[in-house]
Design a protein around this nucleic acid. Structure first.
Ligand SMILES: [Mg+2]
Ligand SMILES: [Mg+2]
Ligand SMILES: [Mg+2]
Length: 789
DNA sequence: ATCCTCCCCTAC
DNA sequence: TAAGGTAGGGGAGGAT
């Protein structure tokens, strides 16, 4: 479904139809008050730099469609008061796309591209209603449905087509008309003989269309598709493929299976090999067992004390408890995932409350038995949290996951009752795969007026299909068993009584829930159950759609597991890599994720040591890198920045003194109580008032020292680490703040000489990165930039 | 070999 | 201000 949110939003806004529209939290102008010191370019350029320098040799290269558009406005500089809004666009209309607007784009930038862009707010209740109506409508045709998201689903239509004796096109047409009538939104339908082809066809069908990709046309169709069209091929794999000279599916067909498997692993290699030929034997899975339940919050995470963090973890655990219980699940494995401000990244990212540039870490623990209790989860994650030894004030995101869910867990014995039934069915279904079935992938798009009342069920004459998909056999067999056997199957999962059939089925807006979780930790009220706001209506199991079968009002009904809503239109992420979202997840964090050696644990418990190290902000991290590198085939030499810091003795606890004595300079804010010491005097907010010592880079302050450091850095290392580059940027911008432009100028020039003449082009790019950021800050601060000869 | 853990990547 | 969520697949590398 593209622009689902927009389609829903303009259902009742005929004035907006045909206009560029975006769903976003920013209302209107696309400008916000400028926050001094915010440097929106840093994160963007960091990402771009990363992207280009990981792109291996090939340069010119393929860029994924829709990924590029000229932007880079360094503007916004002149205006003291207004900065472009960094609210993300969750969904935008096709008219907006025409102007270059993309899902995931910042609203401020979108406004520049498309000044007439209209912002409309989220409306989760309406999404629920439309999604529900759409599923209800389709369930009137068949139950051979796999729900992919609130706006997208698969239908195994083989049985239905056989039964109705109509063509796929006719079916698609009928379905689309029906959905449009009932929801006021348009749906697109793609059809093919397997899931892959149906999906590819859907892409072609959009917007507001349908396409049947016939088997005999597949070869010609697929040959010229970019590899990114294939499911499972995103930006990273695309780059890897491009590096091998593979850009299109046709190119990919030329690569041998063994080569693909060698490069991407046995499973992924095989999938690539098959997909690029249009082959796919995955069955449509009517019931998928959920494998994990989780809750994450990666914005507005700012803690100053361990207690706050623990409190938040507790509340988040309660949220997970709630989701587990709503789903009727329990799990035995708990994972804590955190985002931690990357060393060298700004304390506050340009985006308000955003997580900025981070490292991701995750730790997992096995429970004695499965649980759905928030307290148990909380105690587990708090232990994990302490084992991670983080600086609480650098925490930027937290997530808790529960896995190995009851009923899913056992591979062999027990648990499988539900499973084996399903697999039996699926086996039969997939056995029929070879047949002529069509799988439809429904997509909703546009919206007109009428809102379908979700109450009245269509007295459809369409007969329900056989419970078992596909098999061309048995016309009669199925005829008798239809809904009944399927219903029984579903009953084994969860059948709320038919009375609640109507709404409140899909999950509530996560944002609201999170808001409360956030509120509650603020109040440092440790145990109180999370204020389940709006406990208003009774809610049947989350994500479950209960449907009454048309001509059988007294049947128990069927249950479709619907995917949860996330906060954004599912399409957002398709266009997202360009924006900051993906930057976070992308790869660069090798090495920083290693488990902390026991020794570090000791250090952390020593407040004195901790203080010193955190004063510079990189000591602790550096040691981690170092140690990791020592164990694994090191690719890069140690960074002089590191070495200067504290890494002298690789294995021993470093003498607490060494380099760290004076320069507690630039990262005042980091000089905070240690993480693990439960109590420690707090001295932070006052830091702004203190006179600021001159900026330093890894402890070096004098020009000569800086130069020496830089020279050592560039000459002894083949590939700079991101965090070191960020350190340099930080240092340079500190110089600007310190008004020491003369020094800045000298250093920039020195760096240019060093880095631009390096044989490694990475260094040249690193310089560009640094310079770009320096210029942006200069522009913002002084309205002009540095001239570099 | 097979598992387990810690990721990364991708879809929506 | 902004509200950057949720889930699954699978690879790398170590443990068994
Ligand atoms: Mg979609
Ligand atoms: Mg937004
Ligand atoms: Mg793809």
């Amino acid at each position: 479904m593209d622009c689902f949110f927009v389609s829903v939003a303009i259902r009742n806004r005929p004035d907006l139809k045909g206009k560029p529209v975006a769903v976003t939290s920013n209302r209107g102008a696309g400008k916000v008050l400028h926050r001094p010191g915010a440097n929106p370019q840093l994160e963007r350029q960091y990402y771009q730099w990363k992207q280009s320098h990981t792109k291996s040799a090939d340069e010119d290269l393929y860029r994924t469609p829709s990924q590029e558009s000229p932007e880079s406005n360094t503007s916004g500089a002149g205006q003291e008061t207004a900065a472009p809004s960094m609210a993300e666009i969750a969904s935008c209309s096709y008219e907006a796309r025409q102007a270059g607007v993309r899902n995931g784009m910042f609203f401020g930038k979108a406004k520049q591209l498309c000044p007439s862009l209209q912002a409309v707010p989220y409306d989760f209740e309406a999404y629920k209603e439309v999604a529900l109506t759409m599923y209800e409508t389709l369930a009137g045709y068949t139950h051979d449905i796999e729900a992919l998201s609130c706006d997208e689903l698969l239908i195994d239509s083989s049985a239905l087509l056989a039964e109705l004796c109509i063509s796929p096109e006719e079916l698609a047409k009928a379905i689309r008309a029906d959905i449009k009538e009932k929801t006021g939104c348009c749906a697109s339908v793609g059809m093919g003989s397997n899931i892959l082809l149906a999906r590819l066809a859907t892409r072609k069908a959009k917007p507001d269309g349908q396409h049947f990709l016939r088997s005999e046309d597949v070869d010609d169709f697929i040959r010229d598709l970019p590899v990114t069209s294939l499911p499972g091929v995103g930006p990273v794999m695309s780059r890897k493929l491009v590096a091998m000279g593979v850009r299109s599916c046709g190119d990919l067909q030329q690569v041998s299976l063994s080569q693909l498997q060698k490069k991407f692993g046995p499973r992924t290699g095989q999938t690539l090999f098959r997909f690029c030929r249009g082959l796919d034997d995955r069955p449509v899975r009517y019931e998928k067992e959920r494998k994990s339940v989780s809750a994450d919050m990666n914005y507005n995470i700012r803690f100053t004390t361990v207690n706050e963090a623990e409190c938040f973890l507790t509340n988040l655990s309660m949220e997970v408890q709630k989701r587990l219980q709503e789903a009727g699940l329990r799990g035995r494995r708990v994972t804590l995932k955190v985002m931690v401000r990357k060393v060298g990244a700004p304390q506050e990212p340009a985006k308000y409350g955003g997580h900025g540039i981070c490292d991701n870490l995750a730790r997992t623990v096995m429970l004695a038995q499965s649980t759905d209790h928030g307290e148990v989860i909380a105690s587990a994650v708090i232990k994990l949290f302490h084992a991670m030894n983080l600086q609480v004030q650098d925490l930027r995101g937290v997530g808790i996951q529960v896995q190995l869910l009851d009923g899913n867990a056992h591979q062999d014995s027990m648990g499988p009752r539900k499973r084996s039934i399903k697999e039996m069915l699926l086996d039969q279904g997939s056995g029929a795969k070879s047949g002529n079935q069509a799988i439809a992938d429904i997509t909703q798009q546009e919206k007109t007026s009428t809102t379908a009342s979700s109450s009245s069920f269509p007295p459809l004459h369409l007969t329900l299909p056989e419970p078992v998909p596909g098999t061309s056999r048995s016309h009669q067999t199925c005829r008798q068993t239809p809904k009944h056997s399927r219903t029984r199957l579903n009953c084994s999962i969860e059948v709320p009584s038919p009375s609640q059939v109507d709404r409140s089925v899909l999950e509530a807006l996560p944002a609201e829930l999170k808001e409360q979780v956030l509120q509650s930790w603020t109040k440092t009220r440790p145990v109180s159950p999370p204020p389940t706001s709006a406990p208003a209506l009774y809610t049947p199991p989350v994500g479950t759609l209960v449907l009454q079968i048309p001509n059988h009002p007294d049947s128990p009904g069927i249950v479709l597991e619907l995917p949860n809503f996330s906060q954004v239109d599912p399409d957002v992420f398709a266009a997202l890599p360009k924006e900051l979202q993906e930057e976070l997840r992308s790869a660069y964090n090798r090495g920083s994720n290693a488990q902390l050696p026991a020794k570090i644990l000791l250090e952390q418990k020593n407040p004195l040591l901790q203080l010193k190290e955190s004063g510079v902000g990189i000591g602790r991290m550096k040691r981690r890198y170092k140690r990791k590198n020592a164990n694994s085939p090191a690719k890069k030499g140690p960074s002089p920045v590191k070495r200067n810091q504290a890494t002298k003795s690789p294995a021993k606890i470093p003498p607490p003194s060494i380099k760290t004595q004076e320069p507690l300079s630039m990262m005042k804010a980091e000089i905070c109580p240690s993480t693990s010491t439960a109590k420690s005097d707090i001295s932070e907010p006052s830091s702004k008032i203190l006179p600021r010592p001159p900026p330093t880079l890894a402890g070096a302050r004098d020009l000569t020292d800086i130069k020496t450091l830089l020279r050592e850095w560039v000459t002894t290392i083949t590939e700079p680490m991101e965090e070191d580059i960020l350190q340099v940027v930080k240092y340079c911008t500190d110089l600007i703040e310190d008004k020491d432009l003369e020094k800045l100028d000298l250093i920039i020039k020195y760096m240019k000489r060093l880095m631009k003449q390096s044989v490694e082009s990475v260094w040249s790019m690193a310089f560009d990165f640094v310079l770009d950021n320096v210029q942006v800050v200069l522009q913002q601060t002084y309205g002009s930039t540095l001239k570099i000869s």
